[in-house]
Design a binder for these strands. Structure first.
Lengths: 148, 148
DNA sequence: CTAGACCTTCACGCCGACGGCAGAGTCAAG
DNA sequence: CTTGACTCTGCCGTCGGCGTGAAGGTCTAG
């Protein structure tokens, strides 16, 4: 498939797909005309790239992690490439830290909400956000301390 | 205290503190000389700002959420300001979505790690990252599908 | 053969959270 | 009074993941 269809099938713009290639994340075949030619593998690869980008990895880290990209010689990383593993572990730790920070921020928002409004109103506001998990804290003191 | 001490006590540079003020997140008093004068409240406020920034909120959202900032008339939001509540709920939902994305990315990294190395090596690599919680998946097929 | 959709490379623009520097004023100690 | 640390405003630089044309080649249906 060409770049337009891959874009449609992944929800990613052609510009972004070219950018990924420029960053070494994709290396599609080329037709004699110069057109890029992708296979079904790239659909999954792009989804993976988007997942990792959404998690805050930059393209260099993704390039380090997703192998098989340099066009000449699909150098399959042997059974255990230590630097690859180090990169994976590093990014995994980053993600875990980020999740902790998100949880702290969510708790902070919860305490602010508790201080700003009676819980009945909050529940009404929460209902306006579908898919929002329940289970909030009830400690107005801390948020009041932050607010003033 | 002046900006330098607040910087030391929060781990935030003076430049960033001035930026926060410019964005309406802080509004310190001023000495006749023009020097900014902060209190202990701002220490906690800055920590809150950093927490929210780390969670991906931009300064506009934080300004919307942390009230009491416009120097003239500390307009205390009444018992229930609906737009404030809407902003809080919106950002809370954003955070929850982001946590889901992070979890997906971490699972993806786990499957890649499983495919890239025997678990014994992975465990060794994981030990190099202190504070990294355990509990990983063991499904090499999916990661192999992504890798090739 | 031609129109229109699609593709190519090149190259500048954007945004947000600051970093860094310049030039000038302020403050406390000796 | 001087010195050195600190602070002020203002303004340009940075970085990453693209957006957005511009100028031109390619492909396919009619």
């Amino acid at each position: 498939m060409r770049i337009g269809e891959l874009a449609r099938r992944t929800g990613v713009t052609p510009r972004a797909l070219r950018y990924y290639e420029e960053q070494g994340l994709l290396s599609p075949e080329r037709r004699p005309s110069g057109y890029r030619e992708y296979g079904d593998r790239e659909v999954r690869a792009v989804h993976g790239i988007r997942t990792l980008l959404a998690a805050g990895l930059n393209s260099a880290a993704i390039a380090e992690i997703l192998p098989g990209l340099p066009p000449p010689g699909r150098r399959r990383t042997g059974p255990t490439c230590p630097e690859l593993l180090a990169g994976l572990a590093r990014e995994r730790a980053r993600i875990t830290r980020q999740m902790d920070e998100l949880e702290a921020a969510r708790d902070l928002l919860d305490t602010i909400m508790d201080a700003a409004a009676p819980s009945s109103v909050i529940l009404a506001a929460r209902l306006a956000v579908p898919g929002d998990p329940a289970g909030r804290k009830l400690d107005g003191a801390r948020s009041r301390a932050v607010l003033e």
